[in-house]
Design a protein around this nucleic acid. Sequence first.
RNA 1: GGAGGAAUGGCAGAGUGGUCGAAUGCACUGGUCUUGAAAACCAGCGUACCGAGAGGUACCGGGGGUUCGAAUCCCUCUUCCUCCGCCA
Length: 424
Amino acid sequence: MLQVNFIRQNKETLIQRMKVRGLDVADKVEKILELDDLRKHLQYDSDNRKAENKKASGSFRSLSQQGKKNELEELRNQIASNKNTIKENESKLDKTKEELYDILVALPNMPHESVPAGHTDEDNEVFKAWESDLPSLHEGAVPHWELAKKYDIIDMETGAKIAGAGFPLFKGKGAQLKRALVNFFLAEASDAGFLEVLPPHLVNKDTAFCTGQLPDKEGQMYYVTEDDLYLIPTAEVPVTNMYRDTIVSESDFPIKLTAYTPCFRREAGSYGSHVRGLNRVHQFEKVEIVMIEHPDRSYDTLQYMLRHVEGLLKKLELPYRILRLCGGDLGFTSALTFDFEVYSAAQNRWLEVSSVSNFETFQTNRLKCRFKDENKKSHLAHSLNGSALALARIVAALLENNQTADGIIIPEALRPYTRFDKID
RNA sequence: GGAGGAAUGGCAGAGUGGUCGAAUGCACUGGUCUUGAAAACCAGCGUACCGAGAGGUACCGGGGGUUCGAAUCCCUCUUCCUCCGCCA
């Protein structure tokens, strides 16, 4: 959520930048400023009347000790009438705040200056392309869902029987490969100085609101009505909320956290061949990295996170490219996002395996996550996160790209974790 | 699930209707002293909004109420702790 003061000071920039998302927010911005002025006015008036009443009730005791009944009565009336005005004022104030909030909460983050304009994923800019040749497969190479069947490592049918379509069941070396990937990713994150946490996998409304899933993505999350809880769509949600209502000191930066969790997504409305196999599922596993950083350094930190993710893909020997998302494809809460895509040879397409974003103060404003500068003034911190990495699609790409006539070869870096070097 | 108890500033912990934004201790920051450090002493030290400033207002788990006046009384919700039951 953007701050009103920020909007006030950066009105023209905001209107211009929102255009890359395809939004015209000029009217909304005017309305926000107008409502905020009204809010200030009403509050000022109420504050003054409250101050008057406070003074008046201060003299109450001495008057009553002196037995001045008439004065007391007059005082009581004066306070009562003031109180009525305050009450009316405050109900107007509440309405104004609500109206203001409704507009603010529906306003997405302001895109970073480097975000290209565009509507769909086709307008995304290739930030770093894969420069070597893409792997060419042997005669008779097949997509991962067929490999999964052939080696009996992923069982979609049984998953569907147990839960429903889109809930894969991993078996044998398939399950072990996933566990190996998780351990590999967590070990890499730990080595890079990220603190591992294992957060709750269900979260309450406040938590889902603060990282921006509510109200924007209400229908995308599984919701447990009985207990009023949401299943997490990503570890970003519980992990970032560790810093809700906190004031950190500047020396705590950069805060680096990592977590492995399952991710649950309803993916309502998805269908067709591009959702086949592991391409799009309701439950997948992911190692997430989250950082809280000083505003001056958050874009350097974003690059640092990019390098971390890149390192993982290099070690896994997977062909990848990095995209800078265009305005139309940019998430609601993000100011700048880079997507990592891995080339899936048998499907001959790029699969998104990571999304690394800087949210600037969009989340921390809701979280109230602040730090104090040397003058003890508090400012909102910046929050960032990225997948490092999402498992299902990495598995899909590994299976497809590494298939040979006599089995699927496990990349060197992963073998200490799998304890086998081939799936056959 | 049943029965009790608790929730106050970074932490600990006073405060049961009036001058309490809140004693005290610890922690922290600045200063004095010291070759340096420690100790001691002095001063400062919550958050947010409005205001150029002086200053004003709100906040003692959340919400509502009583009262001229609420941290303090009433209602309600939430969380935590203890005991019993159940249990990975």
